Structure formats: C-alpha cells, structure tokens
Computed example of a mutant assay.
Amino acid sequence: MTAEYSADEVGERVEVGPAKTYAAGIPGVLVALQHGLTKMGPTRTARTLGSLNHATDST
C-alpha cells in the first residue's frame, strides 16, 4: 500500500526524477555488510550474504 502526501503535509518540496538503473551499488553492499556483522557476526554474515542472488535447484 502506498501512502500519498501533499508537499504541505511533509513540509518540503518533493521531486521525482528518472528511475535509477541500479539497485544500490557499493554503498548498499557496505551497509548490508555492516548490519550483518553487527547483528550476526562474521561467520553467519559471510554465509548469509554469500548465498544471496544464487539460483536454487527446484527439482
């Protein structure tokens, strides 16, 4: 569900630009790594982040 607000409600001007051609890039990877290390430790972080975006065998 998407909420819509007028510029008066949020107190600032909202600008919409063209869509990005990437999801997050290096900054997103670094933030994910930082959160993982803080919450799961190095071993679980490496295992978890290493398994992302890999095809799974559905047979």
Rank of each mutant, 00 (worst) to 15 (best):
R13T: 14
G50L: 01
A23W: 11
T56W: 04
G25D: 03
G17A: 14
T45E: 02
V10C: 09
A46V: 07
E4R: 13
T48Q: 07
K20P: 02
S51A: 12
G41P: 07
R47N: 01
T48W: 11
T59W: 01
G17I: 06
V29P: 03
M1Y: 15
G11W: 06
A19Y: 10
H54D: 02
L49F: 09
S51N: 06
D8G: 07
T43G: 00
D57Y: 09
A55G: 03
S58K: 12
M40D: 03
V29T: 13
Y22Q: 09
A23P: 00
A46T: 08
G28T: 03
E12H: 10
V10S: 08
S51L: 05
S51P: 01
G36S: 08
H35V: 12
H54F: 02
A7W: 14
N53E: 01
T59G: 01
A23R: 13
M40Y: 13
Y5W: 14
L52D: 01
G50N: 03
T38S: 12
H54Q: 10
T43F: 10
P27G: 03
E4N: 14
T21S: 12
D57P: 04
T38W: 06
G11D: 09
A19P: 04
Y22D: 07
S51W: 03
A3T: 11
T38C: 09
E15W: 07
M1S: 15
K20Q: 10
Q34A: 13
G36Y: 10
E15M: 08
T56S: 03
E9Y: 00
V10T: 07
Y5H: 15
H35P: 02
A24S: 11
R44G: 00
G28K: 01
G28C: 02
L33Q: 08
E15Y: 08
I26H: 10
T38V: 10
Y22K: 10
T2A: 15
